[in-house]
Design a protein around this nucleic acid. Structure first.
Lengths: 131, 131
DNA sequence: TTCCTTGCAAATCGTTTGCATAATG
DNA sequence: CATTATGCAAACGATTTGCAAGGAA
């Protein structure tokens, strides 16, 4: 299964790297299609899955029923606004020690954790205060 | 929208209360059907959603593409085994302070967080060590 | 030429919903 | 009786997949 070069994959990766709002497969499709109207949704899904599998992008399952994708593969936390649904990076240090905390109470090996924060984003706070 | 009593809802709630392995809707359906073969999958979904909405059960979105349900509505953490997929309660204190930590770095209001831990459960560790 | 990748459409999976009927209060 | 709940099947949205044709090494 040697990887071959593909224009479509390049476009998808490039698009993702230019955004920091964690778009869904459909958003990727809509945008990449403007540059290449022939690309199919299946190809977008296939490449997003492939890129995530080889670790070039990150797949985010935020519990909203849709997968989000992030070209930033460094470990970092995310915030989801319950008002507008936007996904925002959190620039905070890792709280990896909670993995150790959890391990003390558990019969087995804990190797990691997934955490996302939710609440109201800055923009939505403003709107709510103005009302 | 006054709630009316229903045998099906009782059975679903009772089944969930008797398990601590966080079953999916389909597992609930399979089991409740043994006692009432006429119950439909739609009814199971409708009641799980209703019970979660009124706070009598908890819906868990663990990122595996399927919703899990938990009759234990107290805030607690979950562990997911990457080997066998089982979901196990973690008896640990809340790490609610990470919400404050995150808040310091964020322009907006953070009201909560979702965390789950993953790794290898006790049973799977045993199997792996035996190999 | 090999075999990875694509476009397309059909299939799959979990979940929701419309509707006529049954059960509840 | 007024309304909520049910069973059934069809609809849904996100994602995956089979296949024949196209493109890269």
């Amino acid at each position: 299964m040697a990887l071959k070069h593909s224009r479509q994959r390049d476009m998808i990766k490039a698009f993702l790297m230019g955004r920091k709002d964690h778009p869904t497969a459909d958003v990727v499709y809509m945008n990449v299609r403007q540059e290449n109207p022939n690309i199919s949704l299946g190809t977008v899904y296939r490449n997003l899955t492939l890129l995530a599998d080889i670790g070039e992008i990150q797949r985010l399952r935020l519990g909203d029923g849709v997968d989000h994708f992030d070209a930033d593969t460094s470990p970092h936390y995310h915030f989801i606004c319950t008002e507008c649904g936007s996904v925002i990076d959190l620039e905070m240090e890792s709280v990896e020690q909670i993995t150790e905390t959890a391990g003390k109470y558990f019969n087995g090996r804990i190797t990691g954790h997934v955490t996302y924060f939710y609440g109201t984003c800055g923009a939505c706070c403003k709107v709510l205060n103005a009302q």
